[in-house]
Simulated assay, not measured.
Amino acid sequence: MMNDRERNRAYRRAIEATVRPGDLVLDIGTGAGVTALMAARAGGHVVTCESNPHTAFLADRVIRANGYGGRITLIPASSTELVVGRDLPGPPDVVTAEIFDCGLIGESALRALDHAHRELISATTRLVPRGGRLWAQLVESESLHGLNQVGEVEGFDLSPFNAASTRGYFPGRVDRHPHTVLAPAFRLLDFDFGEPPAPRTRHLTVPVTADGTAHALVMWFELDLGGGIRVSNHSAGSGHWEQAVQTFPAPVAVRAGTAVRLTARHDLDALSLGLEAVRP
């Protein structure tokens, strides 16, 4: 992740375009400290946080080794534990965050942003990133399905073990698995990080363009970092993120010219998906 040049370059350009000299910057989930260092180099006074104590210890060493110990305050805690007036002198001018997993919201990104809107930031706070979009595509792939579901093995029925299958999405390099695209890519969900996040349910009808069996939904995101700067985990990219794969416990047979009905629900912590064929 730290060697992901595409991600690093995009965040550097966005932070340099957003942070002004003297700005108070809140960096959420610092990891190795890269985004905090970028914000400090751009002229900001940075308060950054990291919930993993070992990671926070190493990030502090990185920050000091690069000579920014006087411009960056690192707090070994989750951003949801921060308090304005105690940990921050006031609402930050800028918030930076790189707390996104392969499906965008699985690392409690919405939970952190919800708390930030309620307790930390003001109406004039500038965010990097500004928002995100989740794309999806229906595929046939026994290989992807087999990453999360099991049936007969050497003449034995192992399907009861599917009770332990992952219910949500999981990361996977889709281009490493044989698969057939059953429908064009479509926009699944849009997120405006400048607004407080809220649970949503969305119903979509997806036209099918090829005969086959819908084994999985493959998802990827686009992050809007501002100023036309974007970063994505599409399979054609070179970044460190894998794609998000949601397998269906009961694959759905589909035919070209028909459609499937997809229900997408998310709260502040997780995304759930349901799929059914639309009868002609």
Score class of each variant (00 low, 15 high):
residue 196 P to T: 10
residue 172 G to N: 08
residue 194 G to I: 05
residue 195 E to G: 06
residue 184 P to G: 00
residue 194 G to D: 06
residue 178 P to Q: 15
residue 177 H to L: 12
residue 164 A to M: 13
residue 175 D to V: 11
residue 178 P to D: 12
residue 176 R to Y: 08
residue 172 G to D: 07
residue 191 F to R: 04
residue 171 P to W: 02
residue 201 T to N: 14
residue 175 D to L: 07
residue 171 P to G: 01
residue 188 L to A: 12
residue 198 A to Y: 06
residue 186 F to T: 01
residue 194 G to W: 05
residue 185 A to R: 14
residue 199 P to G: 09
residue 193 F to I: 02
residue 175 D to S: 10
residue 174 V to H: 03
residue 181 V to G: 10
residue 165 S to F: 15
residue 188 L to F: 05
residue 179 H to K: 00
residue 179 H to A: 02
residue 173 R to K: 08
residue 190 D to T: 14
residue 179 H to Q: 03
residue 177 H to P: 04
residue 170 F to G: 00
residue 192 D to M: 06
residue 169 Y to A: 08
residue 188 L to N: 04
residue 172 G to E: 04
residue 166 T to R: 06
residue 191 F to T: 06
residue 169 Y to I: 06
residue 176 R to G: 15
residue 196 P to M: 11
residue 176 R to D: 07
residue 172 G to K: 00
residue 164 A to H: 15
residue 201 T to S: 15
residue 170 F to W: 03
residue 185 A to S: 14
residue 196 P to A: 11
residue 178 P to F: 07
residue 171 P to C: 01
residue 181 V to C: 10
residue 191 F to S: 05
residue 164 A to T: 15
residue 185 A to M: 03
residue 182 L to D: 08
residue 182 L to N: 12
residue 182 L to G: 06
residue 166 T to Q: 13
residue 168 G to N: 14
residue 167 R to N: 11
residue 191 F to I: 02
residue 194 G to Y: 04
residue 201 T to R: 15
residue 193 F to N: 01
residue 193 F to P: 04
residue 169 Y to S: 10
residue 170 F to E: 02
residue 188 L to R: 10
residue 198 A to C: 12
residue 185 A to K: 07
residue 176 R to M: 15
residue 190 D to R: 02
residue 163 A to C: 14
residue 165 S to Q: 09
residue 170 F to R: 01
residue 193 F to E: 05
residue 188 L to Y: 01
residue 190 D to P: 06
residue 170 F to L: 01
residue 164 A to S: 11
residue 172 G to T: 04
residue 199 P to A: 11
residue 184 P to C: 03
residue 182 L to A: 04
